[in-house]
Nucleic acid binder design. Structure first.
Lengths: 231, 231
DNA sequence: CTGAACCATGACAATTATGTGACAACGGTG
DNA sequence: CACCGTTGTCACATAATTGTCATGGTTCAG
């Protein structure tokens, strides 16, 4: 799951600079130069966080935020406001308008990154304590641990995510393409046959416990995770 | 060791008045007029207790406390909430947010002093007997002392806080980013890889006692402290 | 029965994540 | 000021994971 950040800032150099820094951290970054572009990008790309410049042509950043906040669906996107001068009054207006945090330019990249992390963590809230289960297989999201028959089993990242996905969506058949989108992410380009290999690896991990048949092949269609044994 | 008290209150006269009274009692007093100033003072001056006004400009006192409490490092600072009217609903919200006590304004100085003493006593007494433990590792919060197998071991500040955090939140996996937020503090700007180094140092400290494997790496996810040994 | 499509599997090399030692900056202290 | 312990950062070493491919087995329509 990659995190999308939208930069709304009219000065291109600053945008580029921030973009560079953010991408190096592994965020997916989109840019918008004015409020109009911003609104369309927001509705299309659903960013997880926004950096908004205070001074924008036409519609100011504050007004942009204010109008965004009116819309229920955008209400929980965290916003960091950027301003040229650290004026106290600006700060107040910005926070009142619905910004979650505030930084004055020029931005210190490290500080920006820290604030982004903090905001993201807060907005995501405390992650689910949930523990997924199917038969003797248990997957605890908080501890990132998989237990089969009460025995801890070590899974690689991909196999972990794959099993997690299957536990969350059992019985249903997914094509290789769908699995790539849903488990790997839409943005990565990977061969479809790679899915086969990871299915194989998943089965190998389950084999010692005799539950490898829960991962089923549906010829011509894809794979399915099922608690019931094939007939 | 002098006791530091931070007053967070936007009305200067009240602040001054309280400050005067507290200083006469021998406390070191700091003031903050708004939430932003408060946060920075807290991280720098590490007060032993805080008086927080309910009504603050921008970010309300409740929200300030709430966000403070999210941060491990600030979780044990006692807070007395001050409010204009003694409304019951306010009280509930305040206490839910993480305040330890509650007073309505205008404050009676004697009562305030008494409550401060009580809270300080409680928080100290509490931490005095509070000793975290996992296997042969014991951490005494009051004395800041760590004992492994009955042997005192010297830890640096960071390693101490890291171990303390792990002892308080075992089993669960934390990413480098989360650890930075929760152990270092949200406002500190440090490279994520630095966490690795401190994990290493923590392990080195535990190694002579054969318990370094309690600090586990979860590849691609972060670190976990666990009493059980990995398989 | 047969070939084409489809899938399982082992091997391998590239890529990534983590471990680790060294070092410089810092603040405190004698 | 020199010394010490602590901390954050870096560069390199090491280890784990991952994607791809080649090969061989299986299934199924015709």
């Amino acid at each position: 799951m990659t995190t999308r950040i939208l930069i709304i800032e009219d000065e291109k150099p600053i945008r580029e600079m921030i973009r560079f820094a953010l991408e190096r951290e592994g965020y997916a970054v989109d840019e918008a130069g004015d409020a109009a572009e911003a609104t369309s990008r927001i509705s299309r790309q659903r960013p997880d966080l926004m950096l908004v410049d205070w001074m924008l042509p036409e519609v100011s950043g504050v007004n942009l935020i204010r109008s965004l906040r009116r819309n229920e669906i955008n209400r929980d996107i965290p916003v960091i406001m950027l301003t040229a001068r650290g004026e106290e009054s600006d700060k107040v207006t910005g926070l009142e308008a619905g910004a979650d945090d505030y930084m004055s330019k020029p931005v210190a990249i490290k500080e920006l990154l820290a604030r982004i992390r903090a905001l993201l963590r807060r907005s995501r809230g405390f992650s689910q304590e949930e523990t997924l289960q199917a038969g003797i297989i248990k997957l605890n999201i908080a501890t990132h641990q998989i237990t089969i028959n009460e025995q801890a089993v070590h899974f690689g990242q991909t196999e972990y995510r794959l099993l997690k996905f299957f536990l969350q969506h059992p019985e249903r058949v997914y094509s290789r393409g769908q699995l790539l989108d849903l488990v790997w992410g839409e943005t990565v380009y990977v061969e479809e046959r790679t899915v086969d290999v990871h299915i194989l690896r998943l089965r190998k991990l389950l084999k010692p416990y005799g539950v490898e048949s829960m991962v089923q092949t549906v010829r011509g269609a894809g794979y399915r995770f099922s608690q019931a044994v094939e007939s």
